[in-house]
């Protein structure tokens, strides 16, 4: 007993004791599921009947038009959210960080509020705002501009726009806070000396703020790729379920959910998941290499 205590207390054993919960979680809830999903992707899994079918699931996927629809929706969503949710929050952070700005703290809080809501509540609100009744908020706005009411969530373009607006509403504030914390690392003197050299506000933003915010931008880009490709609940809530008209809101994860949970076809769903995994890892690693983060770590 004393001996056991001594062993447990040695500085060689103690770290493993501390880390045990992680090792267990990693093995049981990461390695094993990943392993089993890989196996399943080569199987036809029906209740009580499992059959090895080689690459059939993958072959079927490549000719599955709905799958490609989901892939294109997810990629479009990822690209457009990146286009909106990096430049604008950066610009807003640049303005809010200015000393001449009045009420900075109040604006920071207001911008952050949407991030506090759950997707369920946010999705419900936006579904009603983009409702098809002539009296729904967006329709009252466009009819004030002299346009006829639109069935927003039944048309590809407007439905997609609603999804993007929901994402921007929820995440602009959070990304702005990321950039604000990045701005804190830029010394004030840099701006001052640039001002003395005659740089105007626009030039200071282009030549000082953007380059020095690179680490934050890379971080925001990484999580945007990750979240963009894995998006599901936003679309699920906006269309009150996983079935949007002509699949205009279907994402890769939505298709995985449809196949695995709704159609109980686990093997096929596993193949979808693995494609998404390879895709996410691929894009993120290329992006990190391209932006020079991985190189730095190697040195």
């Amino acid at each position: 007993m004393v001996r056991l205590k001594k062993i447990l207390n040695s500085q060689k054993v103690a770290p493993y004791v501390f880390i045990t919960p992680f090792i267990l979680t990693f093995l049981i809830f990461f390695v094993y599921p990943l392993f089993s999903t890989t196996i399943m992707s080569f199987q036809s899994v029906l209740p009580g009947q499992i059959e090895f079918i080689g690459f059939t699931n993958y072959r079927r996927l490549f000719s599955d038009k709905i799958f490609w629809k989901a892939v294109s929706n997810s990629i479009k969503y990822m690209v457009v959210t990146i286009l909106f949710l990096i430049p604008f929050p950066m610009l807003f952070a640049f303005f809010i960080d200015k000393k001449i700005m009045i009420g900075r703290e109040v604006f920071k809080s207001i911008f952050f509020l949407p991030a506090l809501t759950s997707v369920v509540v946010a999705g419900t609100i936006f579904r009603l705002i983009f409702g098809e009744l002539p009296g729904s908020l967006m329709n009252t706005v466009i009819s004030a501009l002299g346009m006829a009411p639109i069935k927003w969530l039944k048309i590809q373009k407007t439905g997609f726009a609603a999804l993007i607006i929901l994402a921007c509403w929820r995440w602009t504030g959070v990304n702005m806070l990321y950039f604000l914390s990045g701005l804190k690392n830029i010394p004030e003197q840099l701006y001052e000396s640039a001002a003395i050299d005659g740089a105007n506000g626009f030039e200071r933003f282009i030549y000082i703020t953007i380059p020095l915010l690179k680490p934050t931008t890379i971080y925001v880009l990484t999580i945007s790729i990750y979240a963009g490709l894995a998006m599901f609940t936003e679309s699920y809530m906006l269309w009150a379920g996983n079935n949007s008209p002509q699949n205009i809101g279907l994402t890769i994860v939505g298709y995985l959910y449809r196949q695995g949970i709704e159609k109980n076809s686990m093997g096929y769903a596993s193949a979808v998941g693995l494609i998404l995994l390879i895709f996410t890892m691929g894009i993120n690693l290329t992006q990190l290499r391209f932006t020079g983060v991985l190189k730095k770590e190697e040195e």
Binding site: F26, T37, V253, L256, L276, L277, N284
Partner: peptide, 27 residues
């Protein structure tokens, strides 16, 4: 095993939960 295990931490961070939700659900 510090470095390999730390890489495992990063690995989990890089894989979206949504990808593993089905096998996790079966688990």
């Amino acid at each position: 095993l510090k470095i390999p295990l730390f890489i495992c931490v990063l690995l989990i961070m890089m894989v979206p939960f949504e990808i593993l939700m089905l096998p996790l659900y079966q688990q």
